[in-house]
Measured scan of single mutants.
Amino acid sequence: HNLTITQGKLFFHYNPKLCLSEIHKMEEVSGTKGRQERNDIALKTNGDQASCENELLKFSYIRTSFDKILLRWEPYWPPDFRDLLGFMLFYKEAPYQNVTEFDGQDACGSNSWTVVDIDPPLRSNDPKSQNHPGWLMRGLKPWTQYAIFVKTLVTFSDERRTYGAKSDIIYVQTDATNPSVPLDPISVSNSSSQIILKWKPPSDPNGNITHYLVFWERQAEDSELFELDYCLKGLKLPSRTWSPPFESEDSQKHNQSEYEDSAGECCSCPKTDSQILKELEESSFRKTFEDYLHNVVFVPRKTSSGTGAEDPRPSRKRRSLGDVGNVTVAVPTVAAFPNTSSTSVPTSPEEHRPFEKVVNKESLVISGLRHFTGYRIELQACNQDTPEERCSVAAYVSARTMPEAKADDIVGPVTHEIFENNVVHLMWQEPKEPNGLIVLYEVSYRRYGDEELHLCVSRKHFALERGCRLRGLSPGNYSVRIRATSLAGNGSWTEPTYFYVTDYLDVPSNIA
């Protein structure tokens, strides 16, 4: 807008934040220059609390790290170098490059900038070799853009010569660093050979998330399962459950009422301010606690030095998902009996873990797994792929695949051998790939016309006998059925096997 004052003059007093240069501009645009008398524009009460600059400061050096910015700028000295009290560095987070010096300023003089007072450097006698002032900004957020400017702080001049310097606002972004852990990993099994893994992005990506790394490792069953005799009275049979499938998407929606109208769909109840505040506090606490764990609990591995020492970490090797089922080394339970199943799973520490690289999504279907087997899954978020990966501390989750139908069934015939004193040795093959492992066998036998009897055969007993022995049988026709019990439950009964026990007292003698 054009402003013209045809008559009258300007009068400025007691404006401590208004620089004289701005008042002189007002004289020019209003056409009143030359009308004012000496005392109409006070030299001592206008701009006496402001830094009124008329020179431009330029930054000469900028260096960044993930949490620091090192700045240096060209030296500046007023005509009387004693008038320079120091520099004021202003900075704040700036997602967009549209910041002005006066953003967030209120009537009390406060604003949204963080201000650092910096002492002037030592003055050199040689004007050509003056030290460049600077400042190291610490405690910054990774991968965050900051708006920065600097200006001088000078003393009051009796001659009211307006001098000083100020830089333009520059924008500097800190470097990326390792992201925080992925949030809320959930693993479920939808079949006997697959596990579905879902997660949420890290709360602090500290860069642009480029991919996720998912490692999985087959877990050995508890050692007590191999040692305890679950045929003993009072000892509860062990059981394991597989990871249940995901709930429906509708039930997972946030901010939804727990109660549904019987007449149909209901609208979600909005969260109160107290609920939102509580969630923010919980989120802040979780982030602080995660940072504490990362800094205190997890110790970084030592990389190899120039002395030739090897990095103890196993090298990563990509495998196809079809090879995942046989990740671990199978060892027989008892070496003397080769027909026992290889369900003991000690994992070799030198073995390469299978892994998958996930790009542009937060889910993965891990296939080719062994049925009813526990897996430990390790999830890392990465925001750099080359020249070397920059990934987060791992988040861990466990899951067990679903049982395989008929995996616990005894394959092959049940054979028998009759000894003296009416002892019958029953023999059968253990299931080759049971659900988890076989903890015991149930032997059901009966003599024709009598009630059915049951015998429990422990895992250890089966390994020693290759089956079991029935003792003290009365003469007669017998039928026997056997079924295995694994961590997933009972298998199917075998087809009945028949044998006849004679009275050993009636056996004919070869003595003449």
Rank of each mutant, 00 (worst) to 15 (best):
D204Q: 09
N208P: 09
N208M: 08
I209P: 11
V214Q: 00
R218W: 01
R218N: 12
E221W: 06
D222L: 11
S223R: 08
L225I: 05
F226R: 10
F226H: 05
L228P: 13
D229H: 09
C231I: 01
C231P: 02
C231H: 01
C231F: 01
L232C: 15
G234K: 06
K236L: 10
K236Y: 10
L237T: 09
S239G: 07
W242I: 04
S243G: 08
P244Y: 10
P244E: 08
P245L: 12
P245K: 07
F246D: 06
E249A: 09
E249H: 13
S251F: 06
Q252N: 02
Q256K: 09
S257R: 07
Y259Q: 12
D261R: 15
S262M: 13
S262I: 15
G264Y: 13
C266S: 14
C266H: 00
S268R: 15
S268Q: 08
P270L: 03
T272D: 03
T272Q: 09
Q275N: 11
Q275Y: 07
I276P: 07
K278T: 05
E279V: 03
E279C: 02
E282V: 11
E282A: 11
E282F: 15
S283W: 04
S283G: 05
S284E: 08
K287V: 14
F289N: 04
F289S: 07
F289M: 03
D291R: 10
D291Q: 12
D291F: 11
L293P: 02
V296M: 11
V297G: 14
V297Q: 14
V297E: 06
V299Q: 06
P300A: 10
R301Q: 13
S304R: 03
S304Y: 08
S305A: 10
S305R: 06
T307M: 08
T307C: 04
A309H: 14
D311M: 10
R316S: 11
R316H: 08
K317Y: 06
R318H: 08
R318C: 13
S320N: 06
S320E: 12
L321D: 03
L321S: 08
L321W: 11
G322S: 11
D323K: 03
D323A: 07
V324L: 06
G325I: 08
N326P: 10
V327N: 06
T328Y: 13
T328C: 09
V331P: 12
V331T: 15
V331K: 04
V331M: 07
V334S: 12
A335Q: 13
A336Q: 08
P338M: 11
N339P: 13
N339G: 07
T340I: 13
T340S: 14
S341Y: 15
T343C: 04
T343H: 08
T343F: 07
S344M: 08
V345D: 05
V345S: 12
S348P: 11
P349Q: 04
E351T: 14
E351F: 04
H352C: 10
R353S: 11
R353I: 13
P354W: 04
P354F: 07
P354N: 11
F355E: 09
E356V: 15
V358P: 10
V359W: 04
V359I: 12
N360H: 06
K361G: 07
E362I: 13
E362Q: 09
E362H: 07
S363M: 02
V365H: 03
S367D: 13
S367T: 10
H371I: 13
H371E: 11
H371F: 06
F372W: 06
T373C: 02
T373K: 12
G374A: 14
G374D: 09
I377Q: 02
I377G: 03
A381R: 02
C382L: 00
N383R: 07
N383G: 03
Q384T: 07
D385Y: 07
D385W: 12
D385L: 06
D385T: 01
T386Y: 03
T386H: 03
P387D: 01
P387F: 09
E388D: 12
R390G: 08
A394E: 11
A395E: 11
Y396I: 10
Y396Q: 12
S398Q: 06
A399P: 05
A399M: 13
A399Q: 13
T401V: 07
P403V: 05
P403S: 06
I410N: 03
G412I: 08
G412N: 15
P413Q: 00
V414F: 03
V414E: 01
V414R: 02
I418M: 01
E420F: 14
N421A: 08
N421S: 11
N422V: 03
V424L: 10
Q429L: 09
K432P: 15
K432Y: 11
E433Q: 07
E433W: 06
N435S: 03
N435P: 01
L437W: 01
I438P: 01
I438T: 13
I438G: 01
L440Q: 15
L440E: 03
L440M: 13
Y441W: 00
E442T: 04
E442G: 08
V443Y: 01
V443I: 08
S444P: 00
S444R: 07
S444D: 04
Y445N: 02
Y445S: 05
R446L: 13
R447T: 09
D450L: 08
E451K: 07
E452N: 06
H454Q: 13
H454S: 02
H454L: 05
L455I: 06
L455S: 10
C456L: 02
C456F: 02
V457S: 03
S458V: 06
S458H: 08
K460E: 07
K460N: 09
F462M: 10
F462C: 02
A463D: 09
A463L: 12
L464K: 04
E465V: 11
R466D: 11
G467T: 05
R469F: 15
R471C: 08
G472Y: 10
G472R: 05
P475H: 13
P475S: 06
G476D: 00
N477T: 04
N477C: 08
Y478Q: 06
Y478I: 01
S479I: 12
S479V: 13
V480T: 12
R481P: 00
R481I: 02
R481V: 07
I482P: 00
R483M: 15
T485E: 02
L487F: 14
L487S: 11
G489V: 10
G491A: 10
W493A: 00
Y498D: 11
Y498N: 02
Y498C: 06
Y498R: 10
V501S: 03
V501Y: 11
V501C: 06
T502D: 02
T502E: 05
Y504C: 14
Y504S: 05
L505M: 02
L505E: 13
L505N: 07
P508K: 02
N510R: 07
